[in-house]
Design a protein around this nucleic acid. Sequence first.
DNA 1: CTACTTCGGTATCATACGGTACATATATCG
DNA 2: CGATATATGTACCGTATGATACCGAAGTAG
Lengths: 199, 199
Amino acid sequence: MARTGRPREFDKQDAVLKALTLFWRQGYEPTSLNQLKEAMGGISPTSFYAAFGSKEGLFREVLTLYRSSHGRVTDVLRDESLSPRQAIETCLRQSARMQTDPSHPPGCLIVLGASNCGPSSGEVVRDLQEERHRNREAIAAQIRRAIAEGELPKDTDTGALVALFNTFLVGLSAAARDGASPEDLEKAIDQIMKTWPPR
Amino acid sequence: MARTGRPREFDKQDAVLKALTLFWRQGYEPTSLNQLKEAMGGISPTSFYAAFGSKEGLFREVLTLYRSSHGRVTDVLRDESLSPRQAIETCLRQSARMQTDPSHPPGCLIVLGASNCGPSSGEVVRDLQEERHRNREAIAAQIRRAIAEGELPKDTDTGALVALFNTFLVGLSAAARDGASPEDLEKAIDQIMKTWPPR
DNA sequence: CTACTTCGGTATCATACGGTACATATATCG
DNA sequence: CGATATATGTACCGTATGATACCGAAGTAG
């Protein structure tokens, strides 16, 4: 069923993709409407607001796109068909590889996208924070499962292992942005997984 | 030798300290001149520019203050009187404790201070990046020393261990900002140091 | 005292920001 | 065809940004 009215003259999905790249490289606040419109092929302010409502609205669409593409690397944290150790190791390896892929800006949008923000961007900051919290909780759930299933000793300190893997996971973004190589990060993951010997 | 001219009516050192708190919490770009002047006791624009030259000039003074106070936690990375392992472990523990101290904003200014910046703040971004690079190099030097002195096997992969500890170190900032407790971080450091058994 | 130097307050600069009003163009629906 | 609905382009809104001009105030030097 085709919609009524004049059809859009620019590709909205492609526009969101261009916006993703900008937000990824610069973050939410320093990316200006002018940059965004320019990257979308020089569309007018009216077209922009008709399509996205606001800068924040666009960012939310960008987040949805990111979650369904590059951001998938953390989905494995919810996979209970893997062993807990495999789930966490796979998440780290996929994240390291994704975040150093030269075909897009380095690091993770969820970690870096709104790290310097004024009071006006509180909603966006909170959204990303909640997403990071969910990932952290997923790590915790895997570790609790490992303890329950006997893959880790019963007296294991859950908070310690969660902090270990989560701190390393969010650290990947800063490391990648500073130019860390995927090879070194992979070997660092070899090292960190040694703290959890497989049975 | 007292200077001629009308004396300043506000405490410049205290003003820099107030600015440090603002930049630490919000980052360089989103912290506005109005906020800064307000925090300095409502001084006028003229007073501000007479004292600091520019926003970037103030940030540089703030960085100097930070390096000589809270930022000292990474100095131990250059201490060759400690064993390499002790130097790195101490750096991690001091950083974790400092960055979760509730008497100031969480995380590290060098890591978080200019993580979302537009093209106009390139200088500041580069300065912080170089500082992080120096810390990373200091970790590398300690690991090379450990290999040379026999504390680590000769076939040790330096890049792997540098990436491991540096990624964790920069990750502390994001973890602390997301509310990680100093206790969990300390226990995570217990874990990560297990990859480097003391002789 | 006068000359000189530096700081302070007000008013303002040019620019950029996110966002809108309004008229017009182009599509579908009946 | 007209009615309706959506998109576009231009011009512009109010506000905030970082930064200055100008002049008077407050100190030292001679």
